[in-house]
Design a protein around this nucleic acid. Structure first.
Lengths: 153, 153
DNA sequence: TATTGTTATACTCTATAACTATA
DNA sequence: TATAGTTATAGAGTATAACAATA
């Protein structure tokens, strides 16, 4: 029974969830500095912008599903983005409960400025890995994601 | 120049920092449910507990370096943990500016209850990968961590 | 009755900096 | 002057649930 101690001891710096969290924090800081700096967007606002740049005319509900933000967080983000003239909305004719959201010209302009910058940051980071390693990493993260989803059920 | 569009378009769901953040959130939720549930610890408190369980008699400053928490966050965490009788402190005889922190018996008991549980969660998660894959993942994350640290400078 | 989205509220977290005590 | 740690304060983010409008 001597080795139960080893298998049950915790070394925080080697604990996978801790290491993952540290790395995530560094990555997200690096990306956030792109959209907080010049355009003063919050993380939520950036996500809404990113998703509307990709596909316009979505409802808050739809955005929620695509970004895993809560409807309330989206409501707040949208409010601020509307007063900053980044998005406008229109009620869905087919179901008046839905409000469809669109980027304004200003919103689109900012989107097209930010996208190359965040992609450049992503690229810089991934330069640490060869193409093969990047593929391997993606596959490993997919597996973990799948497992994590199962464990949270 | 046709492919500049491809290289500069952002698909949020495939954007590495976004995917990483989603996975991190799932993992951390899974771990947090262990220490928030029965013992009502905050994330910061859990980190302080984890590090003091590993190595006792540290100063707040030292804990800060080991956990990348701010001294203020640690001060708050410690305060609550003291009133909950999880830790006690003693002034460093050699330099009275330092306060050394120790787990109480109760703190140690909780530590030894929580550690096997969080390690079991870690294990469950990593079961998604073979031993070889786990090693590969660790190496890839190390490389990314190193690069991310450089980029943040 | 159920759903979309807003609002109220209370709570937690965070960031900055002023403050104390020791060195 | 510099460092360890605490406290004050204001701002940001979060969670719960009540609410209005529509279906």
């Amino acid at each position: 029974m001597q080795n139960t101690e080893k298998s049950e001891s915790l070394v925080l710096s080697q604990f996978f969830p801790y290491r993952f969290s540290m790395l995530q924090q560094m990555i997200s800081e690096n990306i956030a500095s792109v959209y907080t700096g010049e355009f003063d967007l919050s993380r939520h606002e950036w996500r809404v912008l990113a998703i509307l740049g990709e596909q316009t005319g979505l409802s808050a509900k739809h955005i929620s599903q695509l970004t895993s933000l809560e409807k309330m967080q989206i409501s707040r983000a949208i409010n601020r983005m509307k007063s900053n003239d980044l998005i406008y909305d229109a009620i869905d004719k087919n179901d008046k409960r839905f409000t469809l959201l669109f980027l304004t010209n200003k919103g689109q302009r900012i989107y097209h400025i930010l996208v190359p910058r965040v992609l450049a940051r992503e690229k810089d980071l991934l330069k640490a890995l060869s193409m093969e390693e990047q593929q391997a990493l993606n596959q490993l993260l997919d597996k973990l994601q799948h497992k994590a989803a199962l464990l949270l059920k």
